[in-house]
Design a protein around this nucleic acid. Structure first.
Lengths: 209, 209
DNA sequence: ACCTGAACACCGTTCAAGT
DNA sequence: ACCTGAACACCGTTCAAGT
């Protein structure tokens, strides 16, 4: 980004062309989302912050829904990169990778609750964003590998996947929705993931809960 | 409700007093919610359907948020009665009751996805509605009884409760948010609950997943 | 090709005035 | 005590006109 003279925002432009309005609107929408949730993502305000007239955004998005969809997609990509990083840093054991993915899910929800919310609320209308988010094929592959390695009990990988994802999703949602005390939520989540892990893990003896 | 002459809605009233406006507004808000989700719950439209002027609702609710909170509370009570019924009909075994509660959760989410959504999104701002919804004390008691009866492995009941609730909540949410195919969702949910149940159940041998 | 700015319909909310 | 109806500020969206 090139350096500019002091007042970054609302500086009167000399041209009628913004240059990267679409991008800027998505960035601004993200600010509004983080500050006030989905309801606060407001086309007029986004235009104002971009230093542009109220009608301008509609040249790039047919309506507010479309702006929200673009925002959702950006967030989906961000999350995807974040969780990929967690998996890469988790070592070779599929069980560890599995756990790392669940934790990444929950950490993201704690760090960016409104993004997490939007991602899921809006996801029906943007299947691509959903695919980025659930990472279904990766997870099922992880489970199958863990089973072959004798780390998990045998059984249909997609059922295990669904159970694991529901558990993780539920935990994350509970944190986002305020059902869980905010502090210590991550530690709590870890222990719940472990309860589940011990439940599906193979092994000669059952540890107590 | 007393019988009335034919045109139920928008009939011109002869008095300036509605009589039960508050109640009517909540009922109407529920219709709007079911038809179009949270965004469609609209004070002016509710007033219109109640046959009342745009300002009238504000004599009963300080603002739109308050109307939504009242709606949330009504839904919380409805759900509470629904799940109580499921538990009562489940027989004496705590494990069966436990399972019945989870299923009730999911059935409600399938039958009334927008109510379910609102209940959880709005729940932070109305702790009483939340208490009606999570039924925490009942569930923890159920788990403790199941452990005493030798049906569940020993362990802290509140951790098991949290895991179970997260799983159930996650499943319900996935259905509501459209992550799961709508048809067959209930059967799918049942099998996931069973996977979890076998994971935490006590028993001499482990069944395969 | 991209943006302006006035316009329209609609919403949340307020408030003096009615009954 | 409860409701009316006009008013205000604000939003999504459109569109002829500007550059």
């Amino acid at each position: 980004m090139p350096a500019r003279s002091s007042p970054r925002r609302r500086a009167k432009r000399k041209t009628y062309h913004h240059g990267a309005l679409r991008e800027t609107l998505v960035t601004t929408a993200l600010e509004l989302l983080d500050a006030g949730g989905r309801d606060a993502v407001n086309v007029r305000e986004a235009a104002r912050r971009a230093g542009v007239s109220p009608g301008a955004p509609f040249r790039h998005f047919p309506d507010r829904e479309a702006l929200l969809a673009a925002l959702t997609r950006a967030i989906g990509e961000e999350f995807s990169a974040f969780s990929q990083q967690a998996i890469d840093g988790a070592g070779a054991s599929p069980l560890d990778q599995f756990r790392a993915m669940g934790l990444a899910y929950i950490r993201y929800a704690i760090a960016h609750p409104r993004r997490f919310s939007l991602l899921h609320a809006e996801t029906c209308s943007d299947p691509d964003a959903l695919a980025l988010f659930t990472r279904e094929s990766e997870t099922v592959a992880l489970i199958a590998r863990a089973q072959r390695a004798g780390l998990l009990r045998p059984g249909p990988p997609d059922a295990v996947h669904l159970a694991a994802q529901a558990l993780t999703y539920g935990l994350a949602r509970m944190i986002v929705d305020g059902h869980l005390p905010r502090e210590g939520a991550e530690a709590l989540a870890e222990s719940v993931l472990d309860v589940f892990g011990r439940g599906i893990a193979a092994g000669p003896k059952r540890a107590p809960l």
